[in-house]
Computed example of a mutant assay.
Amino acid sequence: MGTVTKIQLMEDGDIWIRVALDSGRHTQFMISDYCNEDGHAYLTQAYAQTVYSSQGLTIDGDVFVFYTQYLDRAHSYVACSRHKVKAHIFANAEELSELIPSDFEHAPIEIGLREALAAQMSRDNRPKLAIEYLTNDQISLLNLEKQKEYELAFC
């Protein structure tokens, strides 16, 4: 990622671009070197990033996080820990109003919304293995069956 510092239209119609990279280095290139066969450049604005693409980044300053229903505990941690100064969380009150915990229904709406947001951002949505859904008795039974299959295979 970087900041475009200069653009120049060349005589042949091509476009020359100079970029100050976020790493501190500078680069320059002809737009034709980054186009597909239809002439569309492989460049995009980076005003915002997904949580996934921000992993490993540190932002000198504030970050602004837009809450969606997909932000669980792991995503919230990554999104809200990219900054050196502050993390600002923005959310849709309508989306959260349906999720206000029952013990906060009569509290001021701001408190209820904050509690709903905290509960949603604390959820563990990581994919689970099948074995995590089984009881210890079910696991023991499966292990016994596998042992019998193993014994039969070597008889």
Rank of each mutant, 00 (worst) to 15 (best):
M1K: 08
G2W: 02
G2D: 08
T5D: 09
T5C: 08
K6Q: 15
K6H: 14
E11V: 07
E11F: 02
D12F: 01
D12C: 03
G13C: 09
V19M: 14
A20L: 13
A20P: 01
L21W: 10
D22L: 11
D22F: 02
R25H: 09
R25I: 02
H26S: 13
M30Y: 12
I31M: 15
S32C: 09
S32M: 07
D33R: 05
Y34F: 15
C35E: 15
N36F: 04
G39W: 06
H40S: 09
T44H: 06
T44Y: 03
Q45Y: 10
Q45C: 08
Y47G: 15
Q49R: 10
Y52Q: 10
Q55C: 03
L57K: 13
G61V: 08
V65K: 03
Y67V: 03
Y67C: 05
Q69D: 11
Y70P: 00
Y70L: 12
C80H: 01
S81R: 03
K84N: 11
V85H: 11
I89P: 02
A91Y: 15
N92Q: 05
A93P: 13
E94A: 10
E94I: 08
E95N: 06
L96G: 02
S97L: 01
L99C: 11
I100K: 03
I100C: 05
P101I: 04
E105V: 13
H106D: 14
A107I: 00
A107W: 09
P108E: 14
I109Y: 01
I109F: 02
E115S: 12
L117C: 09
Q120W: 01
Q120R: 11
M121I: 11
S122F: 00
R123V: 06
P127T: 10
K128R: 15
Y133P: 00
Q138N: 01
Q138V: 02
I139H: 03
S140K: 12
S140A: 14
S140V: 04
Q147E: 14
K148R: 13
K148G: 00
Y150A: 03
Y150N: 05
A153G: 14
